[in-house]
Design a protein around this nucleic acid. Structure first.
Lengths: 214, 214, 214, 214
DNA sequence: CATGAATGAGGGTTCATTCAT
DNA sequence: CATGAATGAACCCTCATTCAT
């Protein structure tokens, strides 16, 4: 086969691969890992269930691949924001806004991924055996995104914009938790709320906490 | 049957139902709702799988009953703390500490319940039909606990201890999110961390946020 | 124990035994053999499920005992009618009427017994092993009732009241089938119909068939 | 896919659905509804239990589909006979003969269907909810066959071949009952009897009843 | 590569029957 | 004898995964 042909075929394959992940995104985001049937993903992608196995090894492979793709997408966006000019607050605002907007109505995927990570810890060994590469990528990307959060805070601290006795790592976890809480709220409500308002409130809290008198 | 005998038998039955819920607590807290097999619960309780059906209607019934029991337990403790004397900070510290300690190594149940609530929103209608009473108790207790958090903050605000432009309800959600983030951390780590330290850091954050300069 | 005491206890036992069969009659007649739960019978009898085993070996034992009791009851009534004075038609009318009335709203039991006999033929060997005595009583009584029908017809034939080339045995089966068809109709309708009318029509048909011109 | 291919695949699928129904016919006809295990049907059809679910929704669906298929088959045959030339007696003879022969050794299915209809009256509401379409087809076909019987009699009456004061509908029910009684007999015996003889006797009875002197 | 079909492996649930009090 | 509780043995049904075309 000519080189061009090979390239074209690879491109097609990648397109289909992403089509499946798009479908998986929708379904996993709505139903979580366990309540998602491969049939639902296939239907959403316009494939048959069996066809999924031409592109992914199994259900976990689809899920991990999706998580990885979304993590890569997110980390790119976050990186750009964090490296951009502006005050800490400005960048934090942009960062949260990006997370909220970037996946639109499929915000639920963050909760699904979060749950998956948390609940499957016990099965992680098995996961790592069967999906060695994917599992480690997943973990690395998760760490990378955490690091981005941390670096944002670290920089802010250096600039005197942050002044907390709490470790940067932990602070970044707190921020992630706050974001997750908004997503949970939306999930339960069934739709996204007022993004701007949510951001404003979160920023307020992140900056000053309860504003307890000192 | 004598009155005493009836009472005794009721007590035994209650003991056993609680035995089952104790077992369910362990398993659900480790594995989450879906990965929990009734057989595991039965084994942990020292029963056969079929015996569970003498005490609960089905798997969801066990789960809801457990959630309700834990919520009742928790709300009692929280209520006492919130109504106790002391500064806002003191009571918040006690409150978080109580949550961390009260369930010892089975802290994971909160995450499981949280996920259940979030993921099952779509199925909630069905749930409410089959488990009308339990489902509404579950919801009511969740709301009650939320209200306790809110009332703690509201009181503090009245006393001038809280000074945030953010709504009390949302603030209380944030605090819950922070607590959950610690539990997730422990779940992933496989064990509880240093409770005192975690509390200290959370209080710091809740009080002052990042301490961003104004 | 005194003789009187023994007698009394036997009487009590027999009373309870019949209480259970009364309950079984209701439930089996409504739901058929398979859809009947021992729990339903127990509840209808005011016993607990386990207590039934103090009186009967198992579900089949209850069923067979019931069938036997009803067969005995029925055969007694039929015998009396068949041995009574009157024309064939008069006695046939009484006979059908007796079947319809004797069990009132529990007419369904005949269908249940009929089905049981028909469907369980394959299992009859097993049945005969485990319930040797009961199974053979059941069969004997069934034959006895058939014989009563046959003897009614045979007598009528002797008296010149029956003039069919068909064998008496088969004729009696036909009559039984017609009776069963009325019961099925009532079962499907959910209640007994107009007994008098049904009898009139059946007699008409039994006497003259379709009245085809010769 | 080409049109031809689609057609072929549909044909294969239909063949297999019928294969399953053939297997179901054997088992249901022998064991009745409740004593039939899906595994038995699957084995008889050369499938695994799970495979049945590729073709039918559940056990009741298989049963209803089978009943419908047999009813359609039967009603076609009956219609042809009823519309054929000949005296009432000739057509009745053909009709009964057709019923006896058409299903060969699986005559038991009529009893099973009959029982199902009778016993499941109480559950019919549930059935109609889960199998709306099938359940109503089942009922309609049953009615259609009844109507065929009725129309046979009605025509005969018009031609002066029937002269009974009993309603046509009831007469047709009686005839059905007689046929069923023969099937029951065969079921208990374990095999078909002498078809010709049975028919002769039934016709005799249907025509003249017991031939009671008027 | 696409897919309809096949299936093993299980999971939840039911129920007749047994046991312990 | 009465019964609440315990349970083995099924059974129906689901679903990820595999196979054949």
């Amino acid at each position: 086969m000519s080189d061009a042909r090979v390239k074209k075929e690879k491109a097609i394959r990648e397109t289909k691969t992403n089509l499946i992940l798009d479908a998986a995104l929708k379904v996993f985001s709505n139903r979580g890992f366990h309540d998602t049937r491969l049939e639902d993903i296939a239907a959403a992608a316009g494939f048959s269930k069996a066809s999924l196995y031409n592109y992914y090894e199994d259900k976990e492979d689809i899920f991990l691949s999706l998580a990885i793709r979304e993590y890569i997408r997110l980390s790119g966006i976050l990186k750009e924001i964090i490296e951009s000019e502006g005050s800490f607050e400005e960048r934090l605002r942009k960062l949260i806004g990006a997370i909220f907007k970037v996946f639109g109505s499929h915000f639920g995927i963050f909760l699904t991924i979060s749950n998956f990570r948390t609940v499957n810890v016990l099965n992680l060994e098995r996961l790592s055996v069967h999906h060695e590469k994917r599992a480690s990528m997943f973990k690395n990307l998760h760490d990378k995104i955490s690091d981005l959060f941390v670096s944002l805070i670290a920089t802010a601290r250096k600039n005197g914009e942050v002044n907390s006795s709490v470790d940067d790592k932990i602070l970044s976890r707190y921020i992630a938790a706050l974001i997750r809480s908004v997503l949970m709220d939306w999930k339960i409500a069934g739709n996204m709320g007022n993004t701007e308002e949510e951001i404003e409130q979160m920023i307020q809290f992140i900056k000053n906490g309860l504003g307890t008198r000192q």
